[in-house]
Simulated scan of single mutants.
Amino acid sequence: MTKIIKSGSGKELADARGRLAPFLRDTLVGLNYAYYEPPGAQMLHNNAIFVRSHDYSEALSTEGEQPWKTPRLVSSGGTHLAGSLADLPYALAWVEQDFIVPESVQSLIWEDLVPSLLTGAVLPRWWRVTGNELHAVTLYQRAGEELLTASAKDEKLRQMVIDILSDRMLPQRSGRLEKALRAGRLDQVFPQIMPADTFYLASEFRRRFPNDAEHWGPAGKELDDLCHRFASEVSPERLSQDFGVPHPALAHSYSRELLNVKPFPTFQDYSSRLLAESWDSNNLYWARLTDEMGYPPVMLNRLVPQLTRRMVEKLFATNLDDWPAILRAMQETGEEFRLGKTASLPKSEATPGP
């Protein structure tokens, strides 16, 4: 082959290219599969020909359909994906979900939820995330919690908080929150508040009421100082790009972003995928855990996929509208991680933060 490349005729070079083309094709496809492999990746690690069997034209040859569409799993001629490489992260996660064993028997899990959660954990890369960014994510959540706590005793502040959170909450949920705050029942407030809620609350409160510094607690004041010293580094826009999730169904884009929308209902077909893409709390919560446990930002690349997979194992909804089951599974996974019960993850040698 080397001799042909150096001094072969045109026909010999064309023949050599033809012989090398399958290897190049398999290599490029394999790199895409490896880059987007979901946590666990049982099919990729245990099926030696899964990548090589990717077929771009099977649908055209067998059903007369357009082959260049999002990949789907087919079993003819051996299990493999058929279609283009568009939406590959979701397709690989969809395959992987069948290898994840629920912790609870007969768990009710929405069909398109798990692939979207896994995709949101795999697609981001945190190699360039700084310690200031990581700590800012923690402070935004803590500052939001401080505002909620203070609003239980301050009617004016409570109305400001509810007005902001109503952007992300359905009327029934915001009504229950306001009632609990008015009664001072913080024990009922925080179990139903998502990390994305507190992040958005602190971010939006700073934007709408820049002169109301008297409402900030210690975390809010530390956040204010951090934002003044590293404005562009810890801005909500940058954190949204680094810790957001892709929205291929909602926004037709794999760009990462915190959309800050109300949760979508689950009723049929595509709805559970929309629910998953409107759920943007995972990466924020894992980032806070990483910061508080003393891990460097680069560890997010390992921790987030593994924690998300463990969270999926803990999912147990009681009915189709029980989206708080996602929050419960996430919190249980986080507590398990704090206690060092997640054997597959490394323990930090640093001193955990407050």
Results as ranks from 00 to 15, higher is better:
N319V: 13
Y295Q: 05
L289K: 06
D291E: 15
A317C: 10
M293A: 11
M293D: 02
L289Q: 05
M299L: 14
E313S: 09
L303R: 03
L315Y: 07
R310S: 02
N301M: 13
L315G: 06
R309E: 08
E292F: 00
L300Y: 12
Q306M: 15
R310A: 06
M311R: 01
T290L: 04
R310T: 00
V312A: 01
L289W: 03
V304K: 09
A317P: 00
T290P: 01
K314D: 03
L303F: 13
L289R: 04
F316G: 02
T290V: 03
R302I: 15
F316V: 04
E313L: 04
P297Y: 14
R288K: 13
D291Y: 10
L320V: 13
R302H: 14
L315M: 14
E292Y: 05
D291I: 05
G294H: 07
M311D: 00
T308N: 00
M293S: 08
L315A: 09
R309M: 09
R288G: 00
V304Q: 09
M299K: 09
A317H: 02
L320S: 08
N319I: 14
R309I: 07
T308M: 00
T318P: 02
R309Q: 12
P296K: 08
M311N: 04
R302G: 14
P297Q: 12
P305H: 06
M299D: 11
N301E: 09
M299Q: 13
L315I: 15
P297H: 14
L307V: 02
L307H: 05
L307G: 02
N319D: 14
R309F: 04
L307W: 08
P297R: 11
T318E: 13
T308Y: 04
R309D: 03
V312F: 06
N319R: 12
A317S: 14
V298D: 11
R288F: 00
P296T: 10
P297A: 14
T308D: 01
V298C: 05
V298F: 11
K314F: 08
M299G: 07
L315K: 04
L300W: 10
L320K: 05
K314W: 08
R288L: 07
